[in-house]
Write a protein that binds this DNA or RNA. Structure first.
Ligand SMILES: [Mn+2]
Ligand SMILES: [Mn+2]
Ligand SMILES: [Zn+2]
Ligand SMILES: [Zn+2]
Lengths: 140, 140
DNA sequence: GCAGAGGTTAGACAGAGTCCAATTCTTATC
DNA sequence: GATAAGAATTGGACTCTGTCTAACCTCTGC
């Protein structure tokens, strides 16, 4: 989706390209997600963004993550009952989820084929599909 | 998994068969889940169980649902970021999830085939797979 | 520079879920 | 049927994630 240019200047351009006014806070939040390319919770984003000097509030982190999701910049991953993770990888893909460590790993959706799904309920349209493979440490 | 005998006496036997001491509260909670055969949140279970006369605490509902999950009597469904649902259907199956109404519908896993999944990460063993198809109302 | 829209903020609030020490129940044994 | 010991339940305090609000700030176009 983006190359490897995670400079603030380039991130600002990416935000503009999605119709988002690039503020300091939004750029820092985008930087946290895209430079780490990891599945981060809101709390983790808040911590990363305020590592050097506190400059972004909890409310702004939540507002911004929601905005990013709505504009397709990042994707929500719902695997843990206690918190949502935000995924800078918006290519179609699935996830391994380690139920012991919480680690989330991507699975390229292009290599996976799913057949035999029933028709959608009448009057309904698809909004997305999640495949989550829960794994745990093999017996020692 | 069970027939259609949702009598308290039979539910008590089912619990014993899973190594669970059948208390009044546990039997009522099992009754709520199996007689409705629906995906219920802890809060919904609490409300159902205390419909006639309050007799079960929130702590017991959570304790019991956890116990039922651990003993394989029910299954957790993690689709909504704000709460867990408990599923009395433990046959392999997937879910439609209406992101607008919250409605959850079962998809028989026997009819669905998934190919091309990568190998599990080294040292990991599968603990389950969830397929969630998020749907919404078709544009009016 | 000014105005107005849009963005940010602290902190109060809500809801799901956990924890604890005190109490009550279940069950095995007599 | 009574007893005793372990198991289960309980209210309520607590934690954590996420939302909301009203005041304040900042950016942009004029
Ligand atoms: Mn939760
Ligand atoms: Mn939540
Ligand atoms: Zn991912
Ligand atoms: Zn189900």
């Amino acid at each position: 989706m983006m190359n490897t240019d995670y400079s603030r200047a380039n991130l600002a351009e990416v935000l503009r390209g999605h119709g988002i006014t690039p503020t300091h806070q939004r750029i820092e939040i985008a930087h946290a997600l895209f430079s780490k390319m990891a599945h981060l919770s809101a709390d983790q984003v808040l911590a990363i963004v305020n590592e050097r000097h506190a400059e972004t509030s909890k409310a702004t982190v939540y507002n911004t993550l929601k905005l990013f999701v709505e504009s397709g910049l990042v994707r929500e991953v719902i695997v843990d009952p206690s918190k949502v993770f935000f995924d800078p990888n918006t290519d179609p893909h699935h996830h391994f989820y380690d139920i012991e460590t919480g680690e989330i790993t991507d699975i390229d959706a292009a290599k996976v084929s799913i057949a035999g799904l029933p028709e959608l309920p009448p009057g309904k349209v698809a909004a997305g599909m999640d495949v989550i493979i829960r794994v745990k440490r093999a017996i020692a």
